[in-house]
Computed example of a mutant assay.
Amino acid sequence: MWTKEFQCGGHESALLDCRSSGSTRNTCSPGKAVGLTCSEPVRLVGGDSRCAGTLELKHQGEWRTVSYSDWSLKTAAVVCRELDCGSAVSVRERRESSDRSVLRIRSNCVQSGSAVRDCVTFDYSSKVLDLTCSDSVRLVNGTSLCSGRLEVKSDQSNQSWSSVCEADFDQQDAEVVCRELGCGAPSVLQGALYGEAEAPMWTKEFQCGGHESALLDCRSSGSTRNTCSPGKAVGLTCSEPVRLVGGDSRCAGTLELKHQGQWKPVSYSDWSLKTAAVVCRELDCGSAVSVREREESSDRSVWWIRSNCVQSGSALRDCGMSADFPFILNLTCLGKTSSS
């Protein structure tokens, strides 16, 4: 064991530049060796809050912009967690007038569990990555970014995340949360659906009208609640914001995904009937019958949803990224099957 006490001021560039005590220490209790975790050197700049903006990573003492490459919301969620923001809401590219030296962070490396900093390569690109996380709500322990136990970040000085008691939350409140996170309408609202909450609990009842853009914009009760029965923390599932348009029925047509309030078509890439079956189930449309491409005259902004990501069990929305592409995905499902 190291035998002296370090006495750093905190400004030194290296630990051995710090002063140390004159006396030596000969013993150290078992289990008392220092374990240390440093935060990722990432930030979002130029947005409306510290949870939105252009992604930058500190490299060799300098903040460098991150390029837009193959990032999906699923990858962005890692950065949102690192910044102690809420859920990932949007990922988009921002084009600059010319290429410049940027950092490229490989999405598959981040999703494999590696630290963002460990996934860096160098690149020259005019496409930089803009990211938006929710400021004060998130869904945790869910099967997608649109499901989980609801947590709210208080506006108090401690800025801690709190679970919400089922008795203080209703369908209109759920509509606001799903909208704030860029998800579809609420489909399931049930206590303890995604694990039991640990303290602290949110202490007031939300009283949303359902039209608000953020949960903390809603009115809340004046009285506080100090207890919440076990198993009563809000678990929320929002539906996938997907639809089929332009076909003979709601179960056929061009696949579109809603993003930041706007419906955008999904590009045709490597989709199979197996992948399409996920959409048909989500829309309650039975089995997938056909998948085909429709070519447009020019490239336009579309969603590219990776088939292997969907088949791995991830939600459609979590697998999406923005792209410019002329081939659009047309899908036909069998239609809703009646139960006997």
Rank of each mutant, 00 (worst) to 15 (best):
S69K: 15
R94K: 05
L83F: 01
R95I: 06
T75L: 09
R92T: 14
V91G: 00
V66E: 00
S67D: 04
A77M: 06
T75H: 07
V78M: 13
E96A: 08
R81L: 05
S72E: 15
S90F: 13
D84P: 04
E82S: 14
A76Y: 04
A76P: 03
T75Y: 13
W71M: 11
E96W: 13
T75F: 13
A76R: 02
L73Y: 01
L83S: 02
K74R: 15
C85G: 15
L73W: 00
S67T: 05
D70F: 13
G86R: 01
A88Q: 04
L73N: 02
S72D: 09
E93S: 11
K74W: 12
S67H: 01
D70P: 06
A88P: 03
K74S: 10
E93D: 14
R92W: 05
A76V: 07
Y68K: 03
K74A: 14
S90P: 15
V66P: 00
T75M: 09
E96I: 10
S72H: 12
S90K: 13
S90N: 12
C85Y: 06
R94F: 09
S69V: 15
S97K: 13
R94I: 10
A77N: 05
V79G: 00
Y68C: 07
T75W: 08
S90Q: 07
W71H: 11
V66S: 01
V89T: 05
L83P: 01
R95A: 11
V66R: 00
E82T: 12
S67L: 03
T75V: 14
S72Q: 14
R81E: 12
W71L: 04
E82G: 14
L83V: 01
Y68M: 05
C85W: 05
V89C: 08
A76W: 02
Y68L: 07
C85L: 11
E93R: 15
C80R: 00
D84K: 05
E93Q: 07
C85F: 05
A77K: 03
S72R: 08
D84V: 08
R94C: 09
G86N: 04
S90Y: 10
V89S: 07
S90H: 09
R81W: 06
D84G: 11
V91E: 00
V78S: 15
L73C: 04
S69G: 15
V78L: 06
S69L: 14
S87P: 09
